[in-house]
Design a protein around this nucleic acid. Structure first.
Lengths: 228, 228
DNA sequence: ACAAAAATTTAGGTCTAGCTAATAATGAGT
DNA sequence: ACTCATTATTAGCTAGACCTAAATTTTTGT
């Protein structure tokens, strides 16, 4: 059966590279330095690995020019993202993990888990479309819903917006927002966007007002609501 | 803090060696060949690794004499066994895995999972004392209930016995027994043990009679019931 | 008691994924 | 257009965990 070896294991660090490129560049291309920074690996090691990934047909890579994912590379990356997000959902929903604990555990687990496990987990969770951060979970067939959300600061003043996701970079930020109910799904009205310091003032459904500065405002992504 | 580095990561294959020695020899000692067979690793590699494990203080090893676990080695092995059995329980109980699928998945997961995860999983499962095969699950503190079960063939004729566990070596065997309800917890009466071929005849609670030959009889372990 | 068989160890090599230091290409600023 | 800082690549090494083939020790059978 030629062409049937779709699911050979693929060492765990290979997946990390693919995910990194996908995260950094999406469909575009990622530089050695960016990947190096993302994975905390020396640039020289990245160069080396990108060469190998190209030989495997997972990335397109040109010396001094950075790398971008091939179809297969993207597929593989999305498969890992799917695993990661489903596992995070499980850890938060069923095992009582907190935001901060979840990421590392999921990072390790996503490399150990089989497709079988992933799909059964999806089943258990009721095939969620989004993870707890609000990020879309790629479908089992590798499809990913296009993400049309925008940073809170770029929303139109006076508009009604719904929080679509909260970026998972910083734990204190997540905690702060979580405590105030600023989580995916929440409906807000944008009251003011001050261009000097980027502070965004919003009003939530309960009439509470929140003023969000630099790191906070950038962590919140929203979608404009159909009816204002 | 000297002596506080209890939980450093320990590469995954190290754990495999410790578990193998524990499984083969318990508290006694395992030969190079046994370990080699158990892990499907060349004998030379085993020799090499046993030397390293000794340096780490995890096994006692004498050239040409085999290896046995030290206290720390045993602790580590039992921790993995705990993980493995809890994960198996979860896969069977919550994700709908079947006997045959469960083992490999658990084997991979047990190396990726943290203590945190393990304990939260134990919580979710209601702190079970036994896994689905009937094997005791080591406690979080490293304690393991002594196992006083014996192979079905060694039970006294006429006695009432309860199936304590079913060894998880062979899938067809597990399936066969499972289909007939010969699972841990089942109460049986031993009708006959034929010494020529080792066939054991038992009667279950429903009055059904089962004649179990070599591989089957050896997979079933029982405990004698207090009141006959 | 000893030779042959079985088990084990040693020696020497591979592959992966990382590292540092030295060298080369790219691109920004004047 | 040229120089210099930045970014990448090459070269050469390390460590872990494995392998095969050759040498050695232990065990077994007579």
């Amino acid at each position: 059966m030629p062409g049937t070896e779709t699911t050979r294991p693929l060492s765990s660090s290979i997946g990390d590279y693919l995910k990194a490129i996908w995260t950094i560049a999406g469909t575009g291309s990622a530089s050695t330095k960016e990947v190096s920074g993302h994975l905390s690996v020396a640039p020289a090691s990245v160069t080396n690995m990108l060469g190998r990934l190209q030989e495997m047909g997972l990335v397109r890579y040109e010396r001094y020019r950075g790398a971008s994912l091939t179809g297969r590379g993207r597929e593989e990356a999305l498969r890992l993202v799917r695993r990661h997000r489903l596992i995070e959902s499980f850890l938060l929903g069923h095992l009582g993990y907190s935001w901060q604990e979840v990421h590392d555990e999921a990072e390790r687990l996503e490399h150990a888990v089989s497709d079988e496990f992933t799909e059964r987990l999806a089943e258990l969770l009721g095939h969620p479309a989004h993870d707890p951060h609000g990020d879309p979970i790629p479908a089992a067939d590798g499809t990913l819903e296009p993400d049309d959300s925008l940073p809170l600061g770029e929303a139109g003043v006076g508009g009604r917006v719904r929080i679509s996701k909260v970026s998972d970079e910083s734990t204190p930020v997540l905690d702060y927002l979580g405590e105030r109910g600023l989580v995916p799904g929440r409906l807000l009205t944008v009251r003011e966007v001050r261009s000097l310091d980027g502070v965004v003032t919003v009003e939530d459904e309960g009439g509470e007002t929140h003023a969000l500065g630099e790191p906070l405002a950038r962590a919140v992504f929203v979608r404009e609501e159909a009816a204002g």
